[in-house]
């Protein structure tokens, strides 16, 4: 139905190698998120799968069938673009029906599917409007509707939420997750936002400079990052890294401790430091601390804590929550 296999896929634009060679297996029905900093090649990888770019070498299979040289229309995939890419001269109804019209589906069936999609996405009352008259969130839904009606082998999302405001982004995140639960269709989702990746994915693919750094479930990446890059990228706020003497004590070149894995004390502990800014959020308190050797650290304390700017503080990593890395950045 929707399994996708990449075998040694390479992509170069002229002399610039964007993707040096990627092997990846995506199971049918999985929600896979490609995540990484901007310029890491995640969008290019998605576009290669979509068929919007030619691979330089390697092969792509969908459901065991080689589609490496097939055009985008032949692959049976649907894509939701960052800019939504709605057809400005067509009504919402026509936008959603467009892929069906291209497939020469009977009118009655087209109408049925559009109505169904509109109901799922709460677009019933907007069907006759033009995209220009819709809000960002509504446009997003139309773009998703246009993808749904085709009943594709897989959905491809290219940073679909990056143009929405923060509140709407959370809503749409939940909606897309729910959509996946209902449709159980393979989804590949590209984002630079690790929160989106963590909350939505069955499987996360972390990319850097075109290379796959690690593939795994969100919790695998959180608790067993393969290297310093993944460790630093997954989790919010970012993991703290300590080098030198403090790391040597644990037999590593660098140790990483997540902000939520510190024990705080005002009297004694492994790392003494001074509190800088304290952000009191009610549910949590985030402390920006400078260790006595100068290393900046962020620590999260649950609930409201009576700690303020300038206070002396001692930090101790929780047992078993110390990530150790060798000199080349790999997990030790």
């Amino acid at each position: 139905m929707g399994s996708i296999t990449l075998k040694n896929v390479r992509k170069a634009f002229g002399d610039v190698e964007v993707i040096p060679g990627v092997d990846l297996n995506i199971e049918d029905g999985e929600f896979v998120v490609f995540v990484g900093p901007s310029g890491c090649g995640k969008s290019t990888l998605l576009r290669l799968i979509a068929g919007l770019e030619d691979v330089t070498s390697g092969s792509i299979q969908i459901d065991g069938k080689d589609v490496t040289d097939a055009g985008p229309a032949k692959r049976g995939l649907a894509m939701v673009f960052q800019s939504y890419a709605l057809y400005p001269h067509m009504s919402v109804r026509k936008n959603i029906a467009f892929p069906l019209k291209m497939a020469k589906m009977p009118e009655a069936e087209q109408e049925k599917r559009v109505a169904h999609a509109a109901k799922i996405l709460n677009l019933d009352s907007y069907l006759e409007r033009k995209p220009g008259q819709l809000s960002g969130g509504q446009r997003q839904r139309v773009a998703i509707g246009r993808a749904i009606v085709r009943e594709p082998a897989a959905f491809l999302f290219d940073e679909p939420l990056s143009n929405l405001d923060a509140a709407l982004r959370v809503n749409m995140r939940v909606e897309i997750s729910e959509l996946h639960n209902n449709l159980k269709t393979t989804m590949i989702y590209v984002t630079h936002d690790q929160v989106e990746a963590m909350t939505m994915a069955d499987k996360i693919v972390v990319l850097r400079a075109g290379n796959v750094e690690q593939v795994g479930s969100p919790m695998e990446l959180y608790s067993r990052p393969a290297n310093k890059f993944v460790a630093g990228f997954i989790g919010s706020p970012n993991m703290n890294f300590i080098e030198g003497e403090g790391a040597a004590k644990h037999g590593a070149h660098t140790i990483g401790i997540r902000p939520e894995h510190w024990q705080l004390s005002t009297t004694e502990g492994a790392f003494p430091g001074t509190v800088g800014v304290a952000e009191h959020l009610g549910s949590d308190t985030f402390l920006h601390i400078q260790l006595d050797d100068g290393t900046p650290i962020i620590a999260r304390a649950e609930g409201e804590r009576d700690i303020h700017h300038g206070d002396k503080i001692f930090l101790t990593p929780q047992e078993g929550r110390i990530y150790k890395f060798s000199q080349n950045g790999l997990a030790a």
């Binding site: 979509a50 068929g51 919007l52 055009g71 985008p72 229309a73 995939l77 649907a78 894509m79 673009f81 960052q82 800019s83 890419a85 709605l86 057809y87 400005p88 467009f98 892929p99 291209m102 497939a103 246009r146 085709r150």
Partner: peptide
């Protein structure tokens, strides 16, 4: 005319002529 719209049409199964 944003290039993404043309790509969207291609993804939606439109031939070059369509």
């Amino acid at each position: 005319i944003p290039g993404e719209i043309l790509e969207a049409a291609r993804m939606d199964g439109a031939t070059l002529q369509q």
